[in-house]
Nucleic acid binder design. Sequence first.
DNA 1: TGATTTTCTTAAACCAGCTTAATTTTTATT
DNA 2: AATAAAAATTAAGCTGGTTTAAGAAAATCA
Lengths: 189, 189
Amino acid sequence: MSEQILTEHISSYVNFSEEELSEIIRFFDIRSYRKKEKLLHAEKRCDTLFFVAKGCLQLYFIDDLGNPKTTQFAMETWWLTDFLAFQYQRPSNFYVETLEKSTVLSISFSKYQELLEKFPKMEKYYRSIFETAYGAALMRIKYINSLSKEEMFFSFRNSFPEFVQRVPQYVLASFLGLTPEYLSEIKRK
Amino acid sequence: MSEQILTEHISSYVNFSEEELSEIIRFFDIRSYRKKEKLLHAEKRCDTLFFVAKGCLQLYFIDDLGNPKTTQFAMETWWLTDFLAFQYQRPSNFYVETLEKSTVLSISFSKYQELLEKFPKMEKYYRSIFETAYGAALMRIKYINSLSKEEMFFSFRNSFPEFVQRVPQYVLASFLGLTPEYLSEIKRK
DNA sequence: TGATTTTCTTAAACCAGCTTAATTTTTATT
DNA sequence: AATAAAAATTAAGCTGGTTTAAGAAAATCA
């Protein structure tokens, strides 16, 4: 089930025996969440790293006007948390919340350290994940600085059509950095 | 000298013996560059990862109108390349160029793989680097989506005053996602 | 040192995208 | 099925930031 999503994902990067994999899994808590449940609270110490086995999470913050703004989505096989706050065990700058019914594997900071110590090959797994994620973030910043809001939407819909279906439009708008009203206008064309 | 900048940086994350460190250093090419030299060319296969020992690099692309736009800077002890293209050995989406006289340690993709295989502890080093870099990129996207261009400038100058001194203003403007004219107007106040 | 090139500034006209506010549609709840 | 709540649409007026263009200052180089 959900455990297998993670073990298969790990196995696609690093070779582990069945016993090792089941030992690795024991470092995680597995839980299902309803829609709109908070998994991580801004301002609180960021102590947990999340892996989405099923469903969809968002990383967001509340702006000056009290509106939530989505910075990152995570769907099946994606990792999510406030990575900067997590690494330095500081208060989180973001909330993490489910966008739909989701099954999530969670690991605390101390368990994460233990896991990496006991299974150094996991360093390679996470190194690959973060190397890709950082590269993708740089590409995203490139898009932000080169596309109009209209182009942003079409380019995003082109690359991730499933997202556009699954995610409420006002959440998508805030992720793309435009207002729901303007997104609505764009779609009309 | 320059080698030491890297070995000291590695040592602040992982413990290696002196012999190991000097073996690690042999995986890299060390070279000095003049101002405005290109180290990586867009469209060409991205085969090299750069470490800045001295000076300053920029990652940039050319927009529709032919203007260079800076996506990322790298100063002393920062790593830089088009990480997504590097990992998958695809054509680069960016140029890498010196902003000033710089000393850079370079490693090819295949040497990088060899290095990680021969010294698995380097996985931990790069995992930490990329985890932080990805976290910082998410924070940067948060800023982009919550601050006005004016606030972006003051917040950036506040966090990285040296950058604002060292980097030409039109490069800083393109990094912050605004026009040099508007940046000039902001500074007047 | 003077000549050339590059970078920075100023100002006015312009527009992409926001704000506001009212209406409609969809979704969730009983 | 009826009611309430949340999400999406529409349209008009407005503004933060761009564009254009020309001049001033600073850096580079012979």
